[in-house]
C-alpha cells in the first residue's frame, strides 16, 4: 500500500509531502522515543508519534521512513514542517489517539 492509499483509506490530514506519497509502505512503528525509532524502525515504515519537533523529521529522513503520522491533532512545529518539506517526508495527522491509529494502520496494511 502506498502512503497516498493509506491517507485515502484512513482520511488523514496531509501537512506536507503531497508530491511524495507514492512510496510503498513496508510497515509501521509506533514510538515517542527517538532512539527507539532510530534503532528499530525499518526503511519504508510509517512512524506514529506525538512528537512534533524538527528532530522527528530528521530521523524520518535518515531512516528513509515513508511518512510521519501525528496523533491527537498534534501539529508539527514550523521547523519540523520545513525540514520534512526539504527532505520530502510526508507529514500526516489525525485526531485519533495512538492506540487507535496504530490498530487502523496495522489493519490497512494487513489487508493488502
Amino acid at each position: 500500500m502506498t502512503v497516498r492509499e493509506l491517507v485515502q483509506n484512513l482520511n488523514f490530514r496531509v501537512f506536507c509531502g503531497e508530491a511524495n506519497m507514492e512510496k510503498e509502505i513496508s510497515g509501521g512503528y509506533t514510538s515517542d522515543l527517538l532512539s527507539d525509532v532510530m534503532g528499530h524502525a525499518e526503511a519504508g515504515n510509517v512512524w506514529i508519534t506525538l512528537q512534533t519537533h524538527k528532530n522527528v523529521a530528521a530521523i524520518a529522513s535518515l531512516k528513509d521512513l515513508a511518512a510521519i503520522i501525528l496523533v491527537k491533532d498534534f501539529m508539527p512545529d514550523d521547523d519540523m514542517l520545513a525540514k520534512a518539506q526539504e527532505d520530502d517526508i510526508p507529514v500526516l495527522g489525525t485526531g485519533e489517539q495512538t492506540f487507535d491509529v496504530s490498530g487502523k494502520v496495522f489493519n490497512s496494511l494487513r489487508v493488502i
Binding site: 515517542d32 527517538l34 527507539d36 532510530m38 534503532g39 512528537q51
Partner: peptide, 12 residues
C-alpha cells in the same frame, strides 16, 4: 520531553 534520553543511545 523531546523523546531523547531514554538510555538507548550507547547500546544502539
Amino acid at each position: 520531553e523531546m523523546g531523547f534520553g531514554a538510555g538507548m543511545g550507547l547500546s544502539n
